[in-house]
Design a protein around this nucleic acid. Structure first.
Lengths: 196, 196
DNA sequence: AGCTAAAGGCTAACCGCATTAGCCACAGAG
DNA sequence: CTCTGTGGCTAATGCGGTTAGCCTTTAGCT
């Protein structure tokens, strides 16, 4: 057999790098093939379809994001964990907008889709971080969803160029994190007042 | 000339209805033509390209969303305005996921793009609502961005099926609104404490 | 009422891109 | 040294957006 220049993993990695440059919906088999110094149909020896390729990018992105967030939170707790975790996620999205878009475009294909555990690991990191606030158990799910909403919303709007005014976006993000932190701590203190 | 069965406006409206059903990235000229009882090339008598069609859907969506939010906030202020405004936006996105996706996929094409005033009207509604909290002027931009992030993030995650657990999503949303309201009011009271 | 012109629909054709079919060459196992 | 299967290639298919060019209908004018 000829030397395996390409592998499913290397193709996926190259595709991920590509979408970060050209945008997720500008991904094309021709462009990727060119990057890899190969003709388009050859890619199908390593990937069954463009849809599957996109899905692999999504799994890769979720896994990477999960690792990044976990590492950032590592050894920290409370406000500190929130701050670095949120910054880690925002940074990941800014550096890998195409991968993040791929992850958002993906739906699990079945019960054994590796995308599921990958995204659960992200959620687990957030849950661990939130547990440091000692929230009322019934409120944790709502706090989790609120946290995911802000972070996802902010990152999405930012990479889409949604923040036009020339006020510092960095500053807005730290303000946002602080806002969330204050709210979570207030909720803790008052034993659930913020949930009414 | 034959009777004008189709107009640019009616085609746009039909396309908007279509994307709400089949999803924004499943929009196709063939599908739309079929809906309108016409052959695909005939659409080009009313629309110059699929990209322009998508852009028109985006403008329509922004305009509709702006009207809905403005009407909801009308005559209310503070916590009340926040609650109904946020609910209005969430409802709009749930009822028109395709249009909302179109709006998010769109970038202004130029300085006289009608998309710009349409989105500014949405922002103006949020600004009017926020003004009721009497925030420090320097913080308004951050509060605005935070608000946009949560609402956009929540709505996006919800329509994407991102909230899996069977805890009530409605309940989470009212929790979220209350969380934001508390934070804004705290920021008001302490004269900017939440912004540190 | 009849003529004219252009709007608006249709068929045929083009093009780019994902995907498939089938061929060929090289490298590792025996 | 041969055999085999992997991994690349060229050629061809099909779908979807788009363009070209034709043809009918009808509003508006005489």
């Amino acid at each position: 057999m000829p030397k395996a220049r390409l592998t499913p993993a290397s193709v996926t990695e190259a595709a991920a790098a590509l979408v970060d440059e050209v945008g997720f919906d500008n991904l094309s088999m021709g462009l990727l093939a060119e990057r890899l110094g190969v003709k388009t149909p050859s890619l199908y020896k390593h990937v069954t379809s463009q849809a599957e390729l996109a899905h692999r990018i999504a799994v890769l992105a979720m896994t990477e994001a999960g690792d990044t967030i976990r590492d950032a939170i590592q050894g920290r707790s409370g406000s500190d964990a929130l701050a670095v975790g949120a910054q880690a996620m925002r940074t990941y999205v800014r550096e890998h907008p195409g991968r993040y878009a791929a992850a958002n475009a993906t739906r699990p294909t079945g019960p054994d889709d590796p995308f599921i555990p990958a995204s659960e690991r992200v959620l687990a990191s957030w849950a661990a971080m939130l547990s440091g606030y000692g929230l009322d158990p019934g409120q944790e799910i709502h706090a989790m969803r609120t946290l995911r909403s802000v972070l996802h919303g902010f990152a999405t709007l930012e990479v889409a160029g949604g923040f036009q005014i020339d006020a510092s976006v960095d500053e807005s993000f730290t303000w946002l994190i602080n806002f969330i932190d204050q709210g979570l701590r207030a909720g803790t203190a008052s034993g659930g007042d913020a949930a009414r």
